[in-house]
């Protein structure tokens, strides 16, 4: 396995400054995001961990150009985001595979939207399915696959145009623990091999520490970033790293942050 590609400290792929997002509702305005500052360097793996309703998905949607910020600024690769950026793949919590396409054709769907070269996309889709152990299922339909296999296919769909940036919105949240561990390993392997910039959203503390170079902690009501920690653990990380003292120091620290915020209660 190749060594971790060092993030390039000098280039920020995603730059969020003093960002705020307010939703108007009948019972008054709801502040989903307040004063968010987050800079993600090229090739870096950053996770945002926080409770439900802290606005982490909203932040991701803003970066993906699916929602607009109410205040502050947001740049992707030096360009203010006005529509969905190029060179960015997205994986959602639900796999969003369509029933009427085979797995291979599902993987190709986004590249068709982007009008990517068909032959190239096909070749890459086949390679990706191979990489994620789905080669034998290319001509199957989504309902014939397990949840983990479906989510793997949706990751392939996000990667088929070889985007430099990958946004992942709780991609493994609906999977069982063992499948989730397996996919964490496969995601790390893919990331080490390609050096993509990844923003990963989760409410799993251990998952965030395991995968990330940095972990941002978010709190709710209003949604703000409380702290960003560096995770200094060697790569590639094996699942057993989770039992090491170095690892548990990080998870314990994050847990303490959530305890102090009252999001976790130790009674």
């Amino acid at each position: 396995m190749p060594a971790a590609p060092a993030p390039r400290a000098d280039i920020a792929d995603i730059e969020v400054r003093a960002a705020g997002k307010t939703f108007e509702s009948e019972r008054g305005d709801v502040q989903a995001l307040v004063d968010i500052d987050l800079s993600i360097r090229r090739g870096e793996f950053v996770s945002i961990v926080g409770p439900s309703g802290c606005g982490k998905s909203t932040l991701l949607k803003c970066i993906a150009g699916l929602e607009r910020l109410s205040s502050g600024s947001l740049e992707v690769r030096g360009k203010a985001v006005s529509e969905s950026p190029d060179d960015m793949g997205i994986v959602f919590q639900r796999d969003l595979l369509v029933d009427w396409r085979t797995i291979l054709d599902n993987v190709l769907l986004v590249s068709e939207f982007r009008r990517y070269d068909r032959a190239k996309a096909r070749k890459r889709a086949v390679e990706l399915l191979e990489l994620f152990g789905l080669a034998d299922y290319a001509t199957r339909y989504p309902w014939e696959l397990s949840g983990g296999m479906r989510q793997r296919a949706s990751i392939c769909r996000a990667l088929v145009d070889d985007p430099a940036m990958l946004l992942m919105d709780e991609p493994f949240g609906a999977l069982d623990a063992m499948t989730r561990d397996q996919l964490n390993i496969e995601l790390q392997r893919m990331w080490l091999a390609t050096g993509k910039t990844v923003l990963f959203i989760t409410h799993g503390i251990a998952e965030a520490v395991f995968l990330s170079d940095r972990v941002a902690v978010m709190s709710r009501n209003p949604g703000r970033i409380i702290e960003i920690i560096d995770v200094d653990l060697p790569r590639p990380r094996a699942l057993s790293v989770r039992e090491t003292p170095a690892f548990t120091r990080y998870t314990a620290h994050l847990r303490d942050v959530f305890l102090s915020l009252g999001i976790l209660k130790d009674e």
Binding site: S84, M88, F92
Partner: peptide
Amino acid sequence: ELLNLAKAARASEWH
């Protein structure tokens, strides 16, 4: 969410 997926890839209305 499927429409979001399309929008994020800047799919045309026709697609």
